[in-house]
Simulated scan of single mutants.
Amino acid sequence: MKYDFDKITPRRGTNSYKWDSTDDKDVLPMWVADMDFQTAPCIINALKKRVDHGIFGYTRVPEEYYEAVISWFGRRHNWQPEREWVIYTSGVVPALSAIIKALAKEGDRILTLTPVYNCFFSSIRNNGCELSSCALRYENNAFSIDYDDLEHRAADPKTTLMLLCNPHNPSGRVWTREELQRIGDICIKHNVIVVSDEIHCEIVHPGYKYIPFASISEEFQKHSVTCISPSKAFNIAGLQIANIIVENEEWRQRIDKAININEVCDVNPFGVIATIAAYNEGGEWLDQLLQYIHANYLFFKAYCEEHLPQLPVAPLQGTYLAWMDCRQLGIPSEELEEELMKNAKLWLNAGSMYGREGEGFMRWNLACPRQFVKEGLERFSSFIKKR
């Protein structure tokens, strides 16, 4: 490989949320979804050039930014939104909150497939709306959609939006065209707007293909809002940049107003520069990153099959977040998280934070040098054997 993903870059003591949220220096953090790899050299070089200028005032977003976003999705994902459909903001979570504020009213129900990214719950709650949870089926260590329940919930007159996670966090599913088609058909039939969080869209494993929801048809594009960001793929979440793609002009105006009401309409110059560099020059680096993450997953899977066969790991189709079924241990997820922190010096995410359907599961972050994956597994396995 041209890029060295085995390299360990110390993060403790850098005010890293992942590494510095505990005072215990012996804890190995494999929880929050950022990577322990340095970002692409093209991004670092672009940022260094900007830092050398030495003035960091208010920034405007140039046309080059929009061109980079549109070109990337056209080249990589066969979807080329129009320039005027793009609204930039400081992150996907602020984007989701603004979209709910713009397109739903207090008391509306927001539909989603659970277990799901925990900030979906807070974005719904903070806007005075109610969660309508369609539980994913989990059978034979595989997740699928209960379309009967989905349609039942979409048909509820109080349901106005569906938050879709594509690819899905934490199950690791990459929804197929057929699955997305059925979701869209149900939502359009019942006049439910699909808001698709596609922040993990670049992290897809061999044999699977990310399909932008809005790319499926003109009708889907008109009845949906898409949230994207280079933050997960290029490990630049701290630069706080994301985009909302929406064709419907009326919705776009309402979302733009909500972004201003929520005061998330300004972005910093580093996020803009990093996005341009990532989308214009970062393809080769990303391709090699994906190879490394997939190899991490294969290592993780093989270890679990040999040493932890009683704890199945869901097939990882997308994201770098492995989902482990720990229900046979008979320990509530939050308690298991605490015990692992205390006794194994290992920090994982409790599955229960992603909804009641996640109880008994644990989420592992595999976006790190393989040495960390090996060490985390050994600590976990040793902890299990001692119980």
Rank of each mutant, 00 (worst) to 15 (best):
K2D: 03
Y3L: 08
K7L: 05
P10G: 06
T14C: 01
W19S: 09
S21P: 00
Q38I: 06
A40M: 01
A40L: 08
P41R: 03
K49R: 13
G54F: 00
G57N: 05
Y58M: 07
P62E: 00
W72A: 15
H77S: 12
V86P: 03
V92E: 14
V92H: 11
V92K: 05
A95T: 13
I99W: 00
I100M: 00
L103T: 12
E106C: 09
G107Q: 08
I110V: 15
Y117W: 13
S122E: 13
R137M: 07
N140F: 07
S144P: 05
I145E: 06
R153D: 00
M162H: 08
R173V: 14
E178G: 07
V192S: 08
V204F: 03
V204A: 09
I211F: 00
F213D: 00
A214C: 08
S217M: 02
S224W: 02
A233K: 05
A237Q: 12
W251E: 01
Q253E: 14
K257A: 15
I261Q: 11
D287K: 14
L289W: 03
P312Y: 01
T319S: 09
L329R: 11
I331C: 15
I331K: 04
P332A: 09
E338T: 14
L340P: 02
A350Y: 02
S352G: 06
Y354G: 04
R356D: 06
E359R: 10
M362A: 12
N365F: 01
C368L: 11
K374R: 13
E378V: 08
